[in-house]
Design a protein around this nucleic acid. Structure first.
Lengths: 298, 298
DNA sequence: ACAATTAATGCAAACGATTGCATAGAGGTG
DNA sequence: CACCTCTATGCAATCGTTTGCATTAATTGT
């Protein structure tokens, strides 16, 4: 049904190869023929069949993005950056939801491989986690707070570790002893933020200042505080990460270190392109971005 | 570089067609040959080349999802439903971000068409908007509130209209006169929710009860109220739509009508599949879901 | 034991584009 | 005018699968 090069060739009386050459901008074709072919192509509504092209060129101009959870604003901001950057080069992006589970992830991977995507993301683009959390905690200390509780993410994950060491470093540089009862780890998700905040608040000598390792745990923590600090003129101060759609609703958060996620996504796309162009030497590439500081309350 | 049917054929001494038939489950092949071929395929790490297959069968097993904004939790919940349903049938989904602008949308569309996606979403899967907003407003009235302000979405959009008529109907059935000063329309985005809420609150006789047409405007409205009702023991009550990641942080919202978006996405995927299987008669299909009621405060 | 089925496999032509090579004129040079 | 060089174009193979049809071999019926 769709128009092919062959149809155009028949219509214009030239060969398929000539049509192909005109349409892919080969200038070794006479101006006259070019005009004729282009006109016919336009009139007939020709659209290149990328499936056929890919088969021949073995380039699909498609990249895969396997994402733990596509409703998660965090990942999608990265995806957005990736998409923006790639679209300019004519690539498109297949997004798969691994649903945080390995079976789904493998399934997605298999599908993507079978579709011969040109690339997938394996490089790391990160922010200066340790420095950011150091600065957040240090800032709290400079404002006179010294009992600062730490709400961590999954201890096995690098960024969680880095954020923890930033916290430790800030205490150390300010000669504040580490108090193990003020340190707890969760899993980066809302519920764990809620639970940990509750545990802290139920301590006999509850801390009033918190470093929370990511946005979602922070939503949980703020949620808990809203329920249980209702009305009271609260003394609580939180510092944390990221700036999302709903961050403006946070009431206890003083400062946040926002990761420039769209920029991170764009950088990731650029690294991926280098890879696809055959730059295999520097693999995997690692890039670090600076965070942006968001002041929420004074 | 990758293993092809030809390679397997050479290895096993049968023809390419036989290999193809074995691997696509044609049972007219002897058990012996089947075993031999399968073993070789496995050993050699064969993976079907879907590009070639698609060229031949003109089925890509890919659907396109053009989305106004991929960082928007609302659209991504739908996308998640679509993805879940389609993945089971071996489809994958190309997600494009139209960035709310027509040029980008056309660009995405062109790319998708050139990739010969099998389908794109054009059916409508909706909730019973009018009924849901009727029920929300009616509920407020039954609790004794009669001056209820309406914060609408983009007036041109069907769902915004439907929600408005539900509001009107609730007033009418309860014999409450419509007060035009209590009706304002925005654009479904955060900022307009913030602005409209401010306008209402600055009225000499400011209303205390609000129906807000969607989640994002509600975030904006809650944001405004947090800033300006700080501390005061507020009398304000909001009813609205949807249940998202950050909804638990809402302080003024009493009830919300949550659209089952993942289910909506799944249904959309099913409709799309019917379309792809050639059911062109009932086009476009429209399905309606019931909302779920979320009680937030009493 | 021979025709008629049936079962198992191979041949070859697609699908739509790309591209190296061949070729037919046109124009230039001595 | 013979020779060479371009320029513009066509031919045909190729990418990896799928699939209708032909073919061979094995099985069945009588």
């Amino acid at each position: 049904m769709p128009v092919t090069l062959k149809d155009i060739a028949k219509e214009t009386g030239v060969s398929v190869s000539t049509v192909s050459r005109v349409l892919s901008g080969d200038k070794a074709i006479s101006a006259q023929t070019q005009k004729k072919v282009r006109k016919a192509a336009k009139k007939m509504g020709y659209r290149v069949n990328t499936v056929a092209r890919s088969l021949k060129t073995s380039k699909t101009y498609t990249v895969g993005f396997i994402c733990p959870e596509i409703t998660n604003e965090f990942f999608m901001k990265i995806a957005k950056g990736v998409e923006q950057e790639l679209k300019q080069q004519g690539y498109s992006m297949i997004i798969c939801n691994s649903n945080e589970n390995v079976a789904d992830e493998e399934k997605s991977l298999r599908i993507l491989l079978e579709k011969w995507v040109d690339g997938m993301k394996t490089d790391a683009v990160l922010v200066n986690n340790e420095h950011a959390s150091f600065a957040l905690v240090d800032g709290l200390i400079r404002r006179g707070k010294s009992r600062i509780a730490f709400v961590g993410g999954n201890e096995l994950i690098t960024s969680a570790k880095e954020r923890f060491s930033g916290y430790l470093k800030a205490l150390k540089e300010n000669n504040i002893p580490v108090d193990p009862t003020l340190i707890r780890f969760g899993d980066f998700y809302l519920q764990s933020g809620y639970d940990i905040m509750r545990e802290f608040c139920e301590m006999k000598n509850a801390p009033k200042n918190f470093f929370i390792s990511n946005y979602f745990m922070q939503v949980g923590a703020e949620r808990y505080l809203q329920e249980f600090e209702k009305g009271k003129e609260s003394e609580i101060t939180i510092v944390g990460f990221d700036d999302m759609e709903a961050s403006p609703l946070f009431r206890f958060t003083a400062v946040a270190a926002a990761q420039p996620m769209v920029a991170i996504g764009k950088e990731a796309a650029r690294l991926l392109q280098r890879r696809m162009e055959g730059d295999m030497e520097s693999f995997p590439l690692i890039s670090r971005f600076d965070v942006e500081w968001i002041q929420r309350k004074i």
